[in-house]
Design a protein around this nucleic acid. Structure first.
Length: 105
DNA sequence: GCCGTGACGATTC
DNA sequence: CGAATCGCCACGG
């Protein structure tokens, strides 16, 4: 699938501004773009992100603080390791501490 | 312009 | 608290 949508480029622009050690949610990005209900579309955009952009897509998680499917990052624990190396903390359930690391676009 | 799809979200059971 | 369900919006065909 191509993904030459203007909306997608907005998503990538926002994702590129995520500070190191912080994370945001798909819903937050969707609201920042003016489409509160387009959280799924945001996720779709991330999945179709061109490698050339080098976006910190590992800093984008869902509203609960869960990480993306492992197969997308090439292996289990990959995304988690990246975040931990940036100072992001996790709870016992393997979820990100949103209160500390959430970033609003 | 309708149909299927999807790294989601909120609600309900 | 965990699983299931429905609703949401943008994009390609």
């Amino acid at each position: 699938m191509k993904t030459t949508g203007a909306f997608f480029e907005r998503v990538w622009s926002v994702a590129a501004r995520i500070p190191r050690g912080k994370v945001t949610t798909y819903g937050a990005i969707a609201r920042a773009l003016g489409s509160p209900g387009a959280a799924r579309t945001v996720g779709w955009a991330m999945r179709a992100t061109p490698s050339g952009l080098r976006l910190p897509c590992h800093r984008v998680v869902n509203a609960v603080g869960e990480l993306s499917p492992e197969d997308v990052f090439g292996g289990p624990g990959v995304q988690r390791s990246l975040l931990e190396s940036e100072g992001v903390t996790f709870d016992k359930q393997g979820r990100i501490d949103m209160e500390r690391h959430f970033w609003m676009p």
